[in-house]
Design a protein around this nucleic acid. Structure first.
Lengths: 351, 351
DNA sequence: ACTATTTTCGTTAACGTACACGAATATATT
DNA sequence: AATATATTCGTGTACGTTAACGAAAATAGT
C-alpha cells in the first residue's frame, strides 16, 4: 500500500512515471523536459482537469510581486480620491498573503510638478507593475512610454488614454455618463426651459475629462432634437469665492432651470444656491461624497451620478495583479456601472 | 547562525523559549498549556501583531467545510434565480481551494412540497452551514427551527425572516425599494394622473414579499400628500393569457398613466402594452432580465429597479463561510443597493 | 571509443501551520 | 517515598508546491 491517496502534482507524477520535479517543470513551463514526456504529462493534466493548489503554491513560492500605485492625494478641495484609495487598500489587504506588496505614490492634482516627481520615483524603484490615474495627459504619456521601455506593465483607472500597451482601463465611460445625465434632465424640466453646464477644474488638462461628459450630455439633446437651451460656464478658480462671483453673473444675465455640474464639486454650486435661496433650480452632479449627500438629502441636489470609485481602485489593483500572475486573461477595458443616486436610495449605495 | 529569519509561529516560539507546538496550542486555544506561558505567548503575539498565514493554515488543515444552498430553481417563467445561483457559484469557486464544498438543492417556486422535500434532504446530510432563500414563510420557519436544533448556522438571502438565530440576511430592503419606485413615479407623471400597481405571483406566500414593496410605494405618496390616485390588481395566474384578461378589464374600466409592477414579471405587462399598442402608459418594474431589458430598450419600460441578485448569492455564501471560519465578525444584515436602470445605463449594469 | 557538453530528470529542503504522539514535569494518592 | 494520574510541553510528519542541486542519460565533438 503506497499510493493510496496521492493528489495534485504527486498523482500526476505517479501516473506519468516521472518525479514531481518534472511535473513541476511542465506546469510552470520551465525548460528541461523532453517533448515526449511533456506531452504525456500535459495529457494527464488535462484528463485529471488538474488545478494547482493556490495555497501550496503561494506558500512555497518566494516570489514577491511589487506594485506601485500612482494616484492623486486626497485634497481638502475634494475627498474623491479617498474612495479609489480605499479600494486599492482593500485589494492589497486581500492579496497580501499571496506575496504582493503595494506602495503608494501620491501627487497633487493642482501641480504637474509633483506628478513628474512621483513618476520618477516610481521608475527608480523597479516595480513589477504600476497602477496609474493619468490625470495629466502629456506627463502620463511620457511616464508610460518609459514604463514600456522598462517592460513594466500598467493599468489605468479613472480616465483612459487609449494607450495600446496598457494592460487594462478600469473606470467610467465619460461620454455615456453625460448622456445619462441628459436623460435625467429630461425628467426634471420641460422643453421650453434652460440648462447651464458648469465645469469646475483648475488644471486645463483635467478639463478633457469633463468635456467628454459635456459631449455626451449635448449629444443626447441633439439626438432627441430637443428644444432645451444649453449654456455653459468654465470655472478655473476652484475656491468658493471665485465660483460665487462667476455663478452670480451667469445667473443674473439669464434664468436657468437646471444646472449640470460635470464633477464632484457640485456641492459648491448647491451651497451657492442654498445661500442665495434659489429653490427652483434643479441640480445634477457627480459622486457620492459627504458634502454632496448633504445637499441631496436637503433636496438641493436632485441626482448624483456615481461610478464606483472604490471599485475602480479595487479592480485596478486586482487587474495588474492578475496580469502579473499570468494565469487568467484580463479584460482590457472595464467600464464601471453608471449609478443614479437619489434621496431615496443613497443610504444603500456602495461606493 | 540558526535563527536568522524566523517568522510567524516559529518566531513567536523562539522569543517565548517554547516550541512551535505550544504556540500552536495557544493560537488555536487548545488545552494543555500553563497559564503563565500562555500569557507570555499571548503578549508576544500582540507585540508582533501576528497574523496567521491563511495559506499555510488552509494547507495544513484537513478540515472540510460543507455548505448546502437551498434556493428556487430557475424556472421558465422567470430567469431571476439564475443570477443568485451564479453568485453562489462564483463564491464557491473562489473558496474551493480553502476547503469548502457547496451542494445545491433546488425547489420549485410554485410548489411547497418540493421545498419541504429538499429541506429534509439537506437535514439528512449534516452540513456545516446552510444558505437559504426562505420563499415559503411557514415551511422555512419549520426548517430553520430544525437547523437550530442541530446547531447548523444559516444565512438568508432575497427575503428576510427576522429570525433571531440567523447569522445574517443579505438582500433587498423591500419597503425602501417601493419607496424609490414611488419617487421615480413622481418624475414620470403629473399630480392629476393615476397609477396601477400590479402584483403577479402564484403562491400567496410570495405575496408578502410584494406587499412590502407596495407598502413602501404607498408610503411615499402618503408622506408627500400627493393627489395621485393609486389602484391595484393581484394576478395569481401567471400565464400570459390570464394576465391579458385581467389587464384588459383593469385598463378598460379606468385610464392609468403609470403601471408599477412589483416584481420581475414586468415584461409580461410590457408585452401586453406593446401588443395592444398602448403607448402613453409609463412602466416601472423590477430586475435586470433579458426580457425586461428588451422592453426597456424599446421604451415600453421606463425604469427597472434592481438589487444585485448575483451579489446576494455571492455575499450570502461568503457570509456563512466567514461565520464558519469564525475569524471575522459578520454583519447580521446587509441591504443591497437599490439600483435604477434606464435605457442609458443598462449596458454597464452588473447584476 | 572516449571525453565534453547539453539535455533531461530525480531528490530534497524549504514555505508556515495543524495535529498526533509521546516525553517530561508537576501534582495527587496511597 | 513510591506510584499513579494529570498537566504541560517538544518532536516529527504532513499539506501541495517551488526551486536549487546534482545525478543520469542523451548528444556532440574529437
Amino acid at each position: 500500500m503506497k499510493n493510496e491517496n496521492a493528489s495534485g502534482i504527486k498523482e500526476i507524477a505517479r501516473r506519468a512515471n516521472v518525479s514531481i520535479g518534472t511535473v513541476d517543470r511542465v506546469i510552470n513551463n520551465r525548460v528541461g523536459v523532453s517533448k515526449k514526456t511533456k506531452e504525456k504529462i500535459l495529457q494527464i493534466i488535462a484528463e485529471l482537469d488538474y488545478q494547482p493548489n493556490i495555497m501550496a503554491r503561494m506558500l512555497a513560492s518566494k516570489r514577491v510581486i511589487r506594485i506601485a500605485s500612482l494616484i492623486p492625494a486626497v485634497s481638502n478641495e475634494t475627498g474623491y480620491w479617498n474612495a479609489p484609495l480605499n479600494g486599492i487598500n482593500a485589494a492589497a489587504a486581500e492579496i497580501k498573503n499571496f506575496g504582493v506588496s503595494v506602495v503608494h505614490y501620491f501627487f497633487d492634482q493642482n501641480s504637474k510638478g509633483t506628478f513628474v516627481e512621483q513618476a520618477n520615483a516610481v521608475l527608480n524603484q523597479a516595480y513589477d507593475g504600476v497602477l496609474l490615474a493619468p490625470m495629466f495627459e502629456n506627463e502620463a504619456i511620457d511616464f508610460l512610454a518609459r514604463c514600456r521601455e522598462k517592460r513594466i506593465p500598467f493599468v489605468l483607472i479613472n480616465s483612459d488614454l487609449e494607450n495600446e500597451s496598457r494592460v487594462a482601463y478600469i473606470g467610467p465611460d465619460l461620454f455615456q455618463s453625460g448622456y445619462l445625465a441628459a436623460h435625467l434632465t429630461k425628467y426634471l424640466i420641460r422643453e421650453d426651459q434652460k440648462v447651464l453646464i458648469v465645469n469646475i477644474s483648475r488644471e486645463i488638462d483635467l478639463h478633457h475629462h469633463l468635456l467628454k461628459k459635456e459631449e455626451g450630455f449635448r449629444a443626447y439633446f441633439n439626438k432627441e432634437r430637443s428644444d432645451i437651451a444649453i449654456e455653459k460656464v468654465d470655472i478655473k478658480n476652484t475656491d468658493y469665492e471665485s465660483l460665487k462671483q462667476l455663478l452670480k453673473s451667469s445667473l443674473s444675465t439669464d434664468r436657468f432651470d437646471l444646472i449640470f455640474v460635470t464633477n464632484s464639486r457640485v456641492s459648491s454650486v448647491a451651497r451657492f444656491l442654498e445661500e442665495h435661496e434659489i429653490h427652483d433650480v434643479k441640480v445634477i452632479g457627480y459622486d457620492f461624497l459627504e458634502e454632496n449627500i448633504t445637499y441631496l438629502k436637503k433636496g438641493v441636489i436632485d441626482f448624483l451620478i456615481c461610478q464606483k470609485p472604490q471599485e475602480q481602485g479595487y479592480k485596478g489593483l486586482m487587474s495588474i495583479y492578475q496580469f502579473l500572475l499570468g494565469s487568467s486573461p484580463i479584460e482590457d477595458k472595464e467600464y464601471m456601472p453608471i449609478d443614479i443616486i437619489t434621496k431615496e436610495n443613497y443610504i444603500y449605495y456602495k461606493n
